[in-house]
Structure formats: structure tokens, C-alpha cells
Computed example of a mutant assay.
Amino acid sequence: MAHTPVNHPARPIYRAIGGLTGLYLVVFGVLGIIASAGNEVLAQDDTKVLGQGTNLGFSLLCVLLGLLVLAGTALGRNIDVAINQWLAYALMVISLGGLAFIRTDANFFNFSIITVIVVMSAALVLLMVGMYGKVGTEEESEAWKKARLVL
């Protein structure tokens, strides 16, 4: 995409922010697994971790997604860009789905409104990191700069 920056000067900072977001997801997931140990996988109870409603299923999903973000951050070279962008979209869908079903029996991830806000915020951070973390050749960078000046 011509409008996505290539070789952005703040790329290392964005990559670190992506890694911290992945680390947050892993820590939240591990704490959620500990807090919801012994409950059903998709229990709808009052289990809260870091102020967010969760259950064993959502905690396991957070650990998995966080490890995926951390692996992408470690690999780099635009693999992290693709992982961050796709997971951002997935987290947005999960967050909006959680918001839609928050007060129904279909709230199978045991979301609270705080959980929806945090998951959507993490998704937006990952999307931003994915947009500004792209690495390319000097020709691609020059093409982006020229396209940017045309706008």
C-alpha cells in the first residue's frame, strides 16, 4: 500500500510498543488462568483480573495471541507487521462481539465493559504498530515518500 510508511524513523519504538502489548496479553492471560483455575472454560461468573472480566477460555486466547505477537516482534522483517495487523482486526471483532453480547447469555468470554475497552485499545495499538513498522528497500521508501508528497 502506497500510503503505509516504509522504514519509518520511529520503527524501533513501534516495534517495542508491539512487544509490550504482546507481553500485556500474556501477563493478563496467565493471571486469568490462575484466577479462573477450577472453573469451566467458558464460565460466566464474577472472575476479574486487572479489573477486567475474564474466564479460562479468554485467558487462554490472550496467552496464545500475546505469544503470537511476541514471536512476530522477535522475528521482525514485516512478519510482525502482518501478525500485528491481522491480530488487531481479530481483536476488534472479538471486542465488538463482546460489546454486542455483554448482557446476554452469549457472553461466553465473560466480558465486562472494561474488558471491551482494553481489548479494543490493544487492537488499536497493534494496528498502529503494524502500520508504522514496515521495513523495505530504499526504493520502496522513496516511492512512499513521493506518494506521500503527492497527497
Rank of each mutant, 00 (worst) to 15 (best):
A82D: 05
A74V: 13
I34S: 06
Q52L: 11
S112V: 12
L56N: 03
D45A: 07
C62A: 14
G98N: 07
Q44R: 14
N78I: 03
V69W: 00
L64D: 05
L68R: 11
G19K: 07
G18R: 04
G32D: 08
I79C: 05
L99G: 15
S36A: 14
L56C: 02
V93Q: 09
D105G: 15
G53N: 04
A43L: 08
L99Q: 15
R103M: 14
A74P: 15
L99N: 14
I114H: 08
I33Q: 12
W86P: 10
C62G: 02
S95I: 01
L75E: 14
D45N: 12
R15F: 12
G66V: 03
L31M: 13
I33P: 12
G98D: 07
S95Q: 04
T73Y: 06
W86S: 14
F28Q: 11
A106M: 15
A106Y: 15
V41D: 01
L91I: 07
G57V: 00
Q44Y: 10
A71S: 13
L96H: 12
I102S: 11
G22D: 01
L31C: 09
A90H: 09
G76D: 00
G66N: 09
Q85Y: 00
F108D: 10
A43R: 04
G97E: 04
V81I: 00
F108L: 14
I34M: 10
F28Y: 10
G53R: 01
L61D: 02
G19C: 06
L20T: 06
M92Q: 05
V81N: 03
F58P: 06
D45L: 05
S36K: 05
G57T: 00
V93F: 13
I33W: 07
N84E: 03
L96M: 15
N84W: 05
A90Y: 08
A43W: 04
A16C: 12
L20F: 15
S59Q: 03
L67S: 04
S59C: 03
A100Q: 09
I113P: 15
L60E: 07
S112A: 13
T104P: 15
M92N: 01
F111I: 03
G53L: 00
L75I: 14
L56P: 01
S36M: 06
F28I: 02
G32L: 11
V63I: 04
E40D: 15
F111D: 07
Q52I: 01
G32A: 12
F101E: 13
L87Q: 08
V27P: 13
R77V: 00
A90M: 11
T54Q: 03
V63G: 07
T54H: 01
L68G: 13
L64H: 04
A90K: 10
V93Y: 13
G51M: 06
M92G: 02
I114S: 09
M92S: 03
